[in-house]
Design a protein around this nucleic acid. Sequence first.
DNA 1: AATGAATGAGGATTCATTCAT
DNA 2: CATGAATGAATCCTCATTCAT
Lengths: 196, 196, 196, 196
Amino acid sequence: MAARKESKQTRQTQILDAAMEVFVHLGFSKARMDDIAAEAGVSKGSLYWHFKSKDDIISAVLYRLFQGGLGELRQIKAMDIPADEKLQRVVQRLAIDVQAMQRWQPLMAEFYAVAMRHGSVQQYLRRYYREYIELLSAVIDEGRDAGIFHTDDAVQAAFTMTAAVEGTILLAALGLSDEGWGQQVENTLLHVMQGI
Amino acid sequence: MAARKESKQTRQTQILDAAMEVFVHLGFSKARMDDIAAEAGVSKGSLYWHFKSKDDIISAVLYRLFQGGLGELRQIKAMDIPADEKLQRVVQRLAIDVQAMQRWQPLMAEFYAVAMRHGSVQQYLRRYYREYIELLSAVIDEGRDAGIFHTDDAVQAAFTMTAAVEGTILLAALGLSDEGWGQQVENTLLHVMQGI
Amino acid sequence: MAARKESKQTRQTQILDAAMEVFVHLGFSKARMDDIAAEAGVSKGSLYWHFKSKDDIISAVLYRLFQGGLGELRQIKAMDIPADEKLQRVVQRLAIDVQAMQRWQPLMAEFYAVAMRHGSVQQYLRRYYREYIELLSAVIDEGRDAGIFHTDDAVQAAFTMTAAVEGTILLAALGLSDEGWGQQVENTLLHVMQGI
Amino acid sequence: MAARKESKQTRQTQILDAAMEVFVHLGFSKARMDDIAAEAGVSKGSLYWHFKSKDDIISAVLYRLFQGGLGELRQIKAMDIPADEKLQRVVQRLAIDVQAMQRWQPLMAEFYAVAMRHGSVQQYLRRYYREYIELLSAVIDEGRDAGIFHTDDAVQAAFTMTAAVEGTILLAALGLSDEGWGQQVENTLLHVMQGI
DNA sequence: AATGAATGAGGATTCATTCAT
DNA sequence: CATGAATGAATCCTCATTCAT
C-alpha cells in the first residue's frame, strides 16, 4: 500500500512538474491538456484520473508555488534574536527564494490574473499576503518596541516591503534588472528598510 | 444603424472603450468578440476592419493604460522648481493616475500576465519603465547635487520607487489595501522616499 | 459618350485582367474580391459597379477564355481546301492557341468544376464542346466523302481528338510534358489522326 | 452513440465514404465538416482526430480515386501474353475503372481543379501518371520488338492514350458522352490505338 | 490506473455584398 | 463612377472533458 501511494504521489508530482513547465512557456490559457500530458509522458486520460480538471491542476500548482514562504517567515519571527536581525534574515531568505523561483515567476503574474476571476484563488492569495504582511509588521512592531526601528506605522512598512518585492519581481521579469533577481530584491528591500 | 460619419479615430476609440468595459467584466480570455461588438454597438466585421485580431485589441487596450505617465514625468522634470518639490509632484500625479486605474481593477492583474506573453507589449513596457526610471533617477541626481537628497545610488532609488508603485497596484488589485489606490500609492511612496 | 463607354470598357477589361491573374494564382474559391480589387488597382466598391457579383466576374472570364476557338474552327471549315488540309490547319491553330493560353489553363480545369454546380456554365461549356465536335466531325465526314479519311465514325473521331487535346492540357498542366504545350498538343493530335 | 470498437482503419474509411458522398452532392467547397460528420454518423471532433483538416480529407479522397490503377497495369505488364493482348486487357480494365468513376461524376471535374492547387496531390498525380505512361510505353515497346506494333515513339503513344482517357473523363463529366463512361473510354482508346 | 478515441459546445475569423458619402 | 467603412452569416477548428476498454 505504501508503494502504491508513493507511486500516486510520484505520478501526480510528475504531472505537476510537466504542467509548470508548460504553463511557464505557454501561460495558463494557451496551455492545453494535451501539452501537459505530452510533457508528462502520460495519456490525457491519466491527467483526469489524478486531477479533476485543468483548473484543479492550476490550483495545485498555485499551492505548490505559494508554499514555504510563510513557513520561513514564521520560523524567523519565532527566533530569539533582535528584530533587525530578523529582518535581515527575511531579506536573505527572500533573495534566495526569489532567485530560486526566478524560473517560475511568470506564473505568479498569471495567478494574480486567475485570482481576479476565481474567488477561491483570490481568497487564498489574499490570505497569504495578509498573513505575510501581518507577520512582517509584527516583527517591525517588535523592533520598534525595542527601540530599534522608528517607523510610526508598522503595517504600512510591511506593506511597502511586500509591494517592493512584488514590484521588483515584475520589473525584473520584464527585463529591467541587470542583476540576478535575488540580488535585485535584496537591494530594493535594503533601500526600503532605510526608512523603517 | 451605426452612424457612418464617425472618424476612424473615433470609431477605434469607441471600440476600445467597449473592449475595456467588457474585459473588466469578463477578463481577456472569456470576453468574446461578439461581446465587444455588442458593447460598442458595431458589427463584428467592423471590429476586424479596425483591428487585426482580438490580440490586437488587447494590445491596444494595454498601451492605452500606459498613456500619459511618461509625458507627465517629463514635464515635471523640466520644471524650474527644486528637486524635492518635483518628487512631490510626481507622487501626486502617480496617486491621481493610479487612483484612476482602480476603475480597471479586475483588468490590472491580467494586464501583467498578458504583458509577460505579448512580445510587443513586453517590449513597449520595458522601454516605458526604462525611461521612467531614467527620468526619475535624473531628478534624484539633481536633488543630490543640490544637497537635498543623500542617496548614493539614484538609479536604485528610482527603481525602488517604480517597483513600489507597481507592487502596490498588484497588491491593491488583490484586495489587500483598505484605502483607495491613490492614497495607498502615496503612502507607500512617501515611505520609500524617506530613504532618499 | 463614346469616350465614356470606352472608359467603361477599359475599366471592365482592367478588372477582368486582374481577376484572371488572381484566379490563376489562387483559384476561384480562394480568390477574394479584395485580391481582385487590389490587383486591378480599384476599390472593392468599383468591382460591384462593373460586375454584379463574384460569380459574374467568373462568368465574364469564362466567356473571355472560350472565345475564338469556335470562330477559328468555323472559318477553317468554310475554307475551300481539302479536308485533310483543314484538319492540319485545325491542329496548327490549336497548337498556337494552347501555347498562347498556357498561362490561363489552370482556369479551364476550374471551369469544369464550376460547371458541375452552375447550370448556366455547364450549359455554356457543353454547347461549346458539342459544336466544336460537330464542326470537327463535319470536316471529317467531308474528308471521308472525298475518300481522304476512312474512319467509320466521324463523331467518335472528333470526340477522340477533342478528348486528346483536353487530356494533353491536363497532363501538361501537371508537369508531365517535356515540351511546350502547343508542341505536345500537336504531337498528340497527329498521333490520334493516324487512325482517321 | 457510435460504436467505439471500430478499428482506426475502419473509422477512417467510414469518414471517407461519407465525405465522398457529401462532396458529390455539394462539391468540395460547399461541403461543411458538419455535413461530413453527420453523414458519417460521428462527431465533428472525431473528424479532426482522424484527419488534420478539411483539406486533409479532400486529399485522402483524391488519393482514393487513384487506387488500383497502377497495380492493375503492373500485373498486366507482367503477364505472359502477347503485347497486343496486354493492351486489350488494359483497355478492358480502364473501361471498368472509369465506369466505376461515373458514380462520382460531379466530383471528377472538381477533382482536376483541386489537384492543380494541392501541392501534395499534384505531386502524387505527377508520379502516378509518369509511372503509368512508363509502364504503358514499355508494353508498347515490347509489342514493337515483337513486330506487333509499328509506332516509332512508344512514349508518345502511351502519352496519347493516357491523355485520351483523361480527356474522355473530362468531357464525359461535362455530359458530352451519350454512352456510359466505360464504353466511351473503350471507344476512344480503340480509336487511338489504331495508330499504334 | 491507464489509454486514446470520441464528443460537441464554443469562438475567432473570413469575405461577399451593401451603401452613405 | 468611385470609395472604403460597415455588415453579419457562415464555417473551420480547438480543446476540456468523458468513457469504453
